[in-house]
Amino acid sequence: MTNPTDNALFDYSPITERPPISWPGGARVAAYIGLNVEHFLVDRPSTSIWPGSADLVPDALNYGWRDYGPRVGIWRTIQSLDRHGIRASALVNSAVAEHYPQIITAGLERNWAWLAHGRTNSILHTGMTRDEERDFLTDVVDTITTATGRRPQGWMGPGLTETFNTPALLAELGLNYVLDWTNDDQPYRLNTSGMLSVPYSIELNDLLLFSKGFTGPEFVQMVKDQHEQLHADSEHSGRVMALALHPFVIGQPFRHKYLDQALEYLAAQPDIWLTTSDEIADHYRSTVAEH
């Protein structure tokens, strides 16, 4: 008899008992940059650098900190990505299309992958009936499709939030993977037909690291340490390395050179596949999941 508290979304699968993954060109580590391109509401609390004013309306201190991202930080971040020839996997709120169309244009010029990331990061993806969620997701996906000319393949919820219905509803809309379940170093199949989980990181993540007091040099060392361990682990089966970035964090002037150093290191590795989350999902599906 099934326990009603069991997780029906995906099965337990120890990484030691899976078919081997071979990445293109003999690469041992597939790496991508998860670039959070987000919109925040001026009258709602959200991610804050100082909680003391988070409930004020308007909250100039925290809203301004977040708003640095689309105004300044993302353009500095794009410079580093361009310098090292790296395409972003853009985790984009659909409201970005209306409020920051220049960012959409910049991403299209660089052939970014576009993932649906809810409507705004001021509202978590929760508390909806199935029909309400279907309507909401349809609007998000259609808005991004219209703005970019491409239907997103992947999803990451604001704050990595989902409902129990989210994977099935995303599949109805033609999406085929999610990033919300940060529990693995390899893609794996969800129990929703056609849906995958692709690794993302809440630890190798600028927002979490720098909010805990880590420094730029420590950030660079963590990127190196992450790659070195995943490279060692991948002797017989490929691994995925996700680097999560938020332009209002990593785009601050005093951190910029450390992002550049981290990307320079990754781009110099001889057996890394610097790619997008879309391409990781596609490759896994065609070489492992369907066999």
Rank of each mutant, 00 (worst) to 15 (best):
P217Q: 10
W114R: 00
H125C: 05
P253D: 08
R87H: 14
T148W: 13
D282N: 10
N176V: 09
T192W: 03
Y200F: 06
Q269P: 03
A281I: 09
S89L: 04
P70K: 01
W75Y: 04
P24I: 11
E38W: 02
L204Q: 02
Y177E: 00
P24L: 07
S53C: 00
D278R: 01
E132H: 11
R189A: 15
R87T: 07
P101T: 05
N191V: 08
D55E: 12
D59A: 03
Y284L: 04
T105M: 08
T5W: 06
A168R: 10
P45Q: 07
T145I: 04
P167K: 05
T120G: 00
Q153S: 14
S46L: 04
A268Q: 10
Q221E: 15
L207V: 03
N111A: 12
V220C: 10
L56F: 10
V29E: 15
N165Q: 14
N111R: 15
T163H: 12
H291P: 00
I21H: 04
T77L: 11
Y258C: 11
L209T: 01
L108R: 12
E133P: 09
Y284A: 01
T126F: 04
I21V: 11
E133R: 13
H256M: 13
D185C: 04
L245G: 00
G69N: 02
S94I: 07
T215M: 12
H256P: 00
N165F: 15
D6N: 11
A113K: 01
H117G: 00
L173Q: 09
F164D: 15
A281G: 06
N62V: 05
P45M: 08
L263F: 07
N176K: 11
I103W: 01
I144M: 06
L173N: 10
N176I: 02
I33M: 09
A268W: 07
G107V: 06
L115Y: 03
L170C: 09
Q252H: 14
E203Y: 14
P158G: 01
G118Y: 02
S46Q: 11
W273C: 05
I49T: 12
K212T: 11
L160C: 09
Q269N: 05
